[in-house]
Simulated scan of single mutants.
Amino acid sequence: MRSQLDRTEKLLIVGLPILIALGFILPEWIVNYIQVSLGTGLVALGVMIQMRAGLVSFGQGLYFCIGGYAAGMAGKFLGISDIFLLLACGLIASVTIAFAAGFLLRRYREIFFAMLSLALSMILFGLLSKLEMLGSTDGFNLPSATYLGWAPEGDTAKHALYVATCIPTIICAFLLNRYLRSPMGYIGEALRENEIRLEYLGTSAHRAVHIKYVIAAGVSGIGGVLWALALGHVDPEMTNWTTSGQFVFISILSGTGNIVAPLFGTFILEIVRVYAVELSPNTWQMILGTLMLLTIIFLPRGLWSLIQEKKHAKKSGGEK
């Protein structure tokens, strides 16, 4: 693994204090959308690293939900409110279940992988919808987060949770970027291009898929905890197929060219959805569908490709 920082990692390091500062400057409604977007953005990152390996998960909401429910159950039944313990609960639960499910999913590719991941997600949706002890279809509320014994209140609690959302998100993005730059990360691209050749080189394609699946689940579980704490509530819709489809939509909209892209894409989607509902309350889904169709036709590599093309144009101009 390379030790020097690349441009993306420098951007993340510089962007963290700026992102935190925005939480004290911008209007509260925008800050709320940023905070929610960071949680769901981590799930989109999980989808993205799988897409780089040629795998499309239509059931990533499974681990988004597991992370949120693990944190919620820890608070509801064990009285845990410390954010570090809640994040650990969500991460451990997601990784454990993904490790077990990975032995099945790593054998499949393309539409079979997508449908199996969706099936697992919908199984959990059905179970949670029937469990009255977990609120059935209504879900249940989470306790207010504490920080190593510190329990802020009012605006201080909001700012503390915002900062506590920004830091894990940037750390996860930084580590995922390092992972994608590592030999194991590059194996994903080889897996997408030619799995048979990868096997001839002595690398197990099944093991590579399994590792990526578990990593994506862990990141999604953390995103689920942060999202649930931001809203203070969990419900079975977190693992519904519509939620999982949203994460795939974000990955397609933003592109897979950079680890930062899904984080921006999530926020863009949230803002577009707000104004789409305001403009057309009954047909706002049509606006999102049109946006996705135009992106696929004119920007098949996502919105991030606009930035990449601009960089290439400047580089070509400088060489001339």
Results as ranks from 00 to 15, higher is better:
S3G: 02
E9A: 05
L11M: 11
I20V: 15
I20R: 10
G23R: 09
L26I: 05
W29G: 07
Q35T: 11
L45P: 00
V47Y: 01
V47C: 15
G54M: 10
G54T: 06
V56Y: 03
A70Q: 04
G72L: 14
A74E: 08
K76I: 01
G90F: 01
T96L: 15
A98F: 09
A98G: 13
A101C: 15
L104N: 14
R106W: 07
R109S: 14
E110C: 05
A119M: 14
F125W: 13
L127Q: 00
F140E: 12
P152E: 14
G154L: 12
A157I: 08
A164C: 15
C172A: 15
A173I: 01
N177K: 06
L180P: 03
S182N: 10
Y186C: 07
E193P: 02
H206V: 04
R207P: 03
R207H: 05
V209R: 00
V209W: 00
I211R: 03
I215D: 05
V219F: 14
S220C: 08
G221E: 00
A230L: 05
G232E: 13
G232T: 09
G232P: 04
H233M: 14
V234K: 12
D235P: 07
T243F: 01
S244T: 11
F249T: 01
F249A: 07
L253C: 07
S254D: 11
G255E: 06
F267W: 10
R273N: 00
S280N: 15
T290A: 15
R301M: 09
W304G: 03
I307W: 12
Q308C: 08
Q308T: 05
H312V: 07
A313S: 14
K315C: 10
